[in-house]
Amino acid sequence: MKLALLSDTHGLLRPEVRKQLKTADAIFHGGDIHTQSIVDELRRYAPLYVVRGNNDGDWAAALPHDLTVALGGVTFYMVHNRKEVPAELPGVHVVVFGHSHKAVQEEKDGVLWLNPGSCGPRRFHQEITMMTAEVWDGKIRVEKITFPGEAR
């Protein structure tokens, strides 16, 4: 199963990102989406798992603050801000978060922590990134994708 992991789109789905979404079996969005139209478009590509970000306004009130999802034998916990992850995460293999606009892939105490970065408008002089992941039989392989891009 191929996953597309993105966060902090802030109202912009770049053509390069859309190309990645076309091959995804599921999409994870770590928040700061900006508009319902982005959510609607993402849902047209594949099943969408999404959490609300700190910049998502009243339109996003129905989106969950955090979410636990199991796919391909891997259990994911999603939240926008890493600081809001609970101290204990029994049964969780991967934490997906956003907020900082900086891509992170690190293992800590047997849990893989992933921030796909931001693939929306360039902010804070950060790279424009997202991630893809293959999950199968309780295993995961992750790839960071970096896009060239204007500030748009």
Rank of each mutant, 00 (worst) to 15 (best):
I145M: 04
G57V: 08
E134Y: 04
P15C: 12
G53A: 12
A70S: 15
K19I: 07
E16L: 02
L5A: 04
G30P: 05
W113P: 13
I140V: 13
V111N: 03
Q20I: 14
P64G: 10
A46S: 10
R18W: 05
H93W: 01
S118A: 13
I33A: 03
Q36H: 08
S7V: 06
I140A: 06
C119V: 12
Q36C: 07
G98M: 02
A61L: 13
D137C: 08
V92D: 00
C119R: 04
T68C: 12
H29A: 01
P121T: 14
V142A: 06
I27S: 01
V104R: 03
H99K: 00
K144L: 08
A24Q: 01
G31W: 02
G57A: 04
N55C: 13
T35H: 13
E127I: 07
V50T: 14
W59F: 09
T129D: 10
A103C: 10
R123C: 14
E16M: 03
Q105T: 14
A87H: 05
E143N: 10
R122A: 11
L114V: 03
N54S: 09
W113L: 15
V39K: 00
Y49K: 04
R152P: 11
N115A: 09
R18C: 08
L3A: 06
A61V: 13
L5F: 01
N81T: 14
H65M: 11
S100W: 01
S37T: 15
P47V: 11
W113K: 07
Q36W: 07
G73K: 15
A61C: 12
E88A: 15
Q126N: 12
V74S: 01
Q126R: 11
T35S: 15
Q20M: 10
R82T: 05
L6C: 06
F124D: 14
K108I: 10
L112W: 06
N54F: 00
E106D: 13
D8P: 08
A4C: 11
T35W: 04
V79G: 03
V92M: 09
R152F: 07
M1P: 05
H29L: 09
A4L: 15
G53H: 02
A62M: 06
M131R: 03
V95R: 03
V74D: 01
W136K: 13
S100D: 10
G30T: 07
H80Y: 03
F97A: 06
A4N: 04
F76V: 04
L71T: 07
M130H: 11
E16I: 02
L13V: 11
R152V: 12
S37E: 14
K83P: 06
Q36V: 11
D109G: 03
L5E: 00
P90H: 10
F124C: 12
